[in-house]
């Protein structure tokens, strides 16, 4: 594969991941209480930590999304994206295995949100794969900080 094509693929993954993370963060930032409840329904966090996560996670998503799009700290954003996707996949899987019938809370935190399902897990696996594509890139096109030259 020539390097131009590879760069385009990496850039495409960055764009998709960037837009996805920013889109996913907005509804959560707008409705922290609903998002905290949504995390609580997964019944996976002790000590009421769902509120702590609901305060911080949406901002991480927004910042990671901006990093992907703008080309700043792409390595750090990619690592965080990989960790998040693995955690999301584990959280969704444990809820499904225990038969917890809830909405995902992935993009929308309202009652109209999508139900958890195999397609939710599959989607996160695709995002995980895209993150690995970005992580393993050979060239750093359209990246501005930090400077490597």
């Amino acid at each position: 594969m020539n390097s131009n094509l590879k760069n385009m693929i990496v850039l495409g993954c960055r764009l998709i991941l960037g837009i996805m993370f920013i889109y996913a963060s907005l509804d959560k930032i707008a409705h922290p209480e609903e998002f905290a409840k949504q995390i609580g329904y997964y019944k996976a966090l002790p000590f009421g930590l769902e509120n702590t996560v609901a305060i911080i996670l949406p901002w991480s998503e927004l910042i990671i999304g901006l990093c992907f799009l703008v080309g700043i700290f792409v390595d750090g954003a990619t690592l965080l994206s990989i960790i998040m996707m693995i955690v999301f996949i584990l959280m969704i899987s444990q809820a499904m295995l225990r038969g917890i019938d809830i909405t995902c809370g992935c993009f929308k935190v309202s009652a109209e949100g999508e139900k958890l399902g195999l397609n939710t897990i599959l989607r996160d696996i695709i995002f995980l794969a895209m993150s690995f594509v970005v992580l393993n890139r050979q060239e750093r096109k359209f990246e501005f900080l930090p400077k490597y030259d």
Partner: peptide, 25 residues
């Protein structure tokens, strides 16, 4: 650095917004 920025922004915005939530549910 990204985690630190998220923590700071998250905590500050939560403390100043009117619909902020308590740190533990």
């Amino acid at each position: 650095a990204l985690i630190l920025v998220s923590l700071v922004v998250g905590i500050i915005t939560n403390s100043i917004r009117s619909d902020g939530i308590s740190f533990f549910a």
